[in-house]
Design a protein around this nucleic acid. Sequence first.
DNA 1: CCATTAATTATCG
DNA 2: CGATAATTAATGG
Length: 231
Amino acid sequence: MINIHQNGNCLECDKKCSAFKRLLSEELNYINQYRFHITYKKGEVIFKQNTPASNVISISRGVAKTTFEDKFNKNLILSLIKGPSLVVGPGIYVDNIYHFTLTALTEVHACIIDVLAFKKLIRENSDFAEQYISEMSVRAIRNYQRTFCLTHKQMHGRVADALLNLSQNIFNAPEFEMPLTRQELGEYTGLTKESVSRILTKFRDDQLIQMDGNIIEILNMDKMITISENG
DNA sequence: CCATTAATTATCG
DNA sequence: CGATAATTAATGG
């Protein structure tokens, strides 16, 4: 974690997440005083579960994951995030602790923003607050789908969901470079890495996907969606 | 249906 | 080259 910039300011920033677009010029100048821009390398932890939640993170570029970890080695990837996106730990309004770990999957450009400055803007600008609530709501709805996926679907459906989410919500393309290892795909789908591996080669043999090294292309989107829906 | 185990192969640093 | 990741196959809850 090196490479601290002070170049530019929030007013001119064109990588703002949508909530910040609701801020007035003077509010942007205010928040500008309480932020650090930083570049994380692939694999670096941005913040860690069970540590004090003193900041919110505005990711301008890159892909990250949120993981819920127990004391041993059972990890669950809660969500994948693509910038621009504002990552706010729910703990800031509960117990001031981060309840998940945020990790860069690619190079991530982000601003670390003081949580007190963020809360002040929430109180003072209802437009900003509403946009933030709206973003939280989108995540809540996605969480319903994910909970359903992990509790009611079986292997093929879960892997299909993972691929569809990457394709539709993260990369907006049928072809993309897989940012997750097989282990991580397992942690995302609640399967073992061996099962993930086996399903992926079956998908390839069935002409559903093409795999070229780390590049994955969904060849038959309709069938993939059917598999997702049928569990 | 799917995890576990184990053995083998590929890839990374 | 040694370590780590991915694949494949066999077994059993």
